[in-house]
Amino acid sequence: MSLFSTARVAHLVCLTAALLCASFGASAQTAATFPNKPVTIATPFPAGSGPDAVLRQVSDKLSKLWGQPVLIINRPGASGFIAIDSVVRLPADGYNLLQLDSEHIGAVPHLYKSKGFVPFNAFDPVAALFRTPFFLAVATDSKWQNMKDLVAAAKAEPTKVNYGSWGIGSPGHLGGEELELLTGTEMTHVAFREFSQLFTSVGSNDVQWSFGSIPSSQGLFKAGKIRYLAVAAPKRLPQMPEVPTMAESGGPAGFEVNSFVTLVSPKGLPNDLKAKINADVIKVLADPEVKARFNTFGFEPLSWSPDEIRKNAEAKGKTYEQLIKRKNISLD
């Protein structure tokens, strides 16, 4: 190699090292000074919903921690795509975040195959917020006293037993599909547009059962219109300790129906920013006021890392994919 070539290589090596150092320094400085302007979080959930309510409390705490406004923009509709499309092409700088649940990440891609939506090709997981389990609700005067009764009725008359949910591809729908699979039964699904319509119909026996979370179903539960046969979780919930688990009620052991909610960023968020936002959200979730509010909803705060969010989302996505393929469910 000539002296000129050797000198040129050395120059390029030094230049590359300098650029890498500069890049690292800029990245570290970005994390150290973030945020220095308002942060915006878009959400596909409507104002007043459970996920919206807790997001606003979390954003208020983050605003105080960061010394910058954290603004919530509600963009409900189109199975989350209105919110998704509003954020996906924005800069991956930490100032543009999006709230998504595990169904947006795990079910929607399989329900809308024509859209070619691959969540983690478009977004980076940043921070988890909470997980919510679901109860199986029936009318107060239902003849079923436990899950054993419900499963026996479904086996005795295939397709005669019906259940409601708040939409095709919702946890309430796919949870029902999984219950069918695990119990060898066939039931009829009825989709509703509104939670209020759903649980009113359960209470009047227009539909025979439904899954529901504490915030979505407690109104009619407290009014004495519905009761819970079981919680689809491995343990009883502290908020409703009298309600048995699926296994305790005669349902399939290990059967869980839940949804978790996360914050994501457009793809390419620097790792140092990702780590900072994740750590700050975890700090906020440990705040006693936030924990108390989550407790009223029956929401479990989550302290997952971005890698843990991805792992849990991909596992749920595999389950949803199998259930969707089994019945050829599509929203295209």
Rank of each mutant, 00 (worst) to 15 (best):
V58M: 01
D60K: 04
T43C: 09
A18G: 15
W304T: 09
A17I: 12
T245V: 08
G224F: 06
L100N: 05
R56I: 00
I329Q: 04
G169S: 09
L129W: 07
A53C: 08
E289H: 04
L100A: 06
V243W: 07
E308S: 09
L237E: 12
V39I: 08
A156V: 05
A107L: 06
A10S: 08
G167V: 08
A32M: 08
F134A: 15
E321F: 02
L65D: 09
S201D: 13
S165M: 00
L12Y: 09
K311W: 07
S201A: 15
I73Q: 11
L198H: 06
R236E: 07
Q68A: 10
L3V: 14
L12M: 13
G298F: 03
L3P: 06
N146S: 15
D141V: 15
D280E: 12
I282Y: 01
G268R: 03
T183W: 00
A47Y: 00
S86H: 11
A92S: 11
A78R: 08
K113W: 08
A128W: 01
W66Q: 01
W166H: 03
P35E: 01
S165A: 03
D141M: 06
L237H: 12
P244I: 01
K148W: 07
L55C: 06
Q29T: 11
D101G: 07
M187V: 04
R236P: 02
N328P: 03
A83D: 03
A83T: 08
G317L: 04
S216A: 14
D272I: 09
E314I: 12
Q99S: 07
Q57L: 11
F199E: 04
I329P: 02
N328C: 05
P119Q: 13
N271D: 14
P76L: 04
P119K: 10
K235R: 14
A152L: 04
G250S: 02
E186Y: 10
R310N: 13
K148Q: 15
D149E: 03
A28Q: 10
S216D: 12
F255C: 11
F195C: 03
E186N: 09
E186T: 10
H173A: 14
P76Q: 05
T159N: 09
V108N: 07
N295T: 15
F24C: 12
P270F: 04
N96D: 13
K267L: 12
W304P: 06
A122P: 04
P215T: 11
V9I: 13
G212D: 02
S265L: 03
N96H: 15
F120N: 07
P266F: 01
E289K: 10
P51W: 00
V151P: 00
A315C: 14
L15Y: 05
D101T: 02
A28M: 10
I105Y: 01
A7Q: 10
A232Y: 03
D93S: 05
A42E: 03
T319V: 14
S249G: 02
F130P: 11
P306F: 10
D206R: 14
F192M: 06
S330M: 00
Q68C: 00
L182W: 00
P51M: 04
G116M: 08
G77E: 06
V54D: 03
A232S: 10
I105V: 12
Q99P: 02
G116Y: 10
R89S: 15
K143P: 09
N205C: 05
F221Y: 15
K61R: 14
G317D: 03
Q29F: 13
R227V: 14
